[in-house]
Computed example of a mutant assay.
Amino acid sequence: MQGVIGLRAARLWLAALLALAVVGCASVEPPEFKRLPERVELNGVPFFRGNANQGAPQTLAGMLGEQRIRITPGLLVKPLKLPGAEASLQSNIEQLAAGYGLMVYPLDSSLSALLTQVAAGYPVMLRFSDGTLWSEPRYAMLVGYNRAKGTVLLRAGMERRRLMDFNKFESAWKDAGGWAVLILSPTQLPANVDNTRWLKIANELSRSGQEQAAATAIKTLQAHH
Rank of each mutant, 00 (worst) to 15 (best):
Q2L: 05
G3A: 14
G6R: 01
A9H: 09
A10C: 08
R11A: 09
L12I: 07
W13Q: 05
L14H: 08
L18W: 05
L18E: 00
L18A: 01
L18Y: 03
A19E: 01
A21P: 00
G24T: 00
C25L: 10
V28L: 11
V28A: 06
P31A: 09
E32P: 07
R35T: 14
P37M: 04
N43T: 12
G44F: 14
G44L: 12
G44M: 12
P46C: 04
R49I: 04
N53S: 13
G55S: 02
G55P: 03
P57V: 00
Q58Y: 02
T59H: 03
T59F: 07
T59R: 07
I69D: 02
I71N: 01
I71H: 00
P73G: 00
L76N: 02
K78I: 10
P79K: 08
K81N: 06
G84H: 03
G84V: 03
E86F: 01
A87W: 11
A87N: 07
S88P: 09
N92L: 13
Q95W: 07
Q95T: 11
A98I: 11
G99R: 09
G99I: 09
Y100F: 15
V104C: 03
V104H: 03
Y105H: 02
L107T: 09
S109L: 07
S109A: 14
S109E: 11
L111F: 05
L114I: 13
L114F: 07
L115Q: 09
Q117A: 00
V118C: 05
V118L: 02
G121Q: 01
Y122S: 03
Y122H: 12
P123N: 00
M125S: 00
R127A: 11
T132C: 04
W134V: 03
Y139G: 01
A140R: 00
L142I: 06
R147C: 00
R147H: 02
A148R: 14
A148G: 07
K149E: 04
K149C: 00
G150L: 01
T151D: 08
T151Y: 04
V152H: 08
L153M: 11
L153I: 12
L154A: 08
L154F: 02
R160I: 10
L163H: 13
L163V: 15
D165T: 10
N167R: 15
F169V: 10
F169Y: 14
S171M: 04
S171W: 04
W173K: 03
A176T: 10
G177V: 08
G177E: 05
G178S: 07
W179D: 14
A180E: 09
I183K: 08
S185M: 03
P186H: 06
A191R: 14
N192W: 08
V193T: 13
D194W: 06
R197C: 01
W198I: 10
W198D: 07
L199I: 12
K200V: 09
A202I: 13
A202P: 15
E204I: 11
L205N: 06
S206P: 11
S206Y: 09
S206V: 05
S206R: 15
R207W: 06
S208F: 11
A213K: 08
A215L: 13
A215P: 13
A215M: 12
K219C: 10
T220I: 10
H225Y: 13
H225E: 10
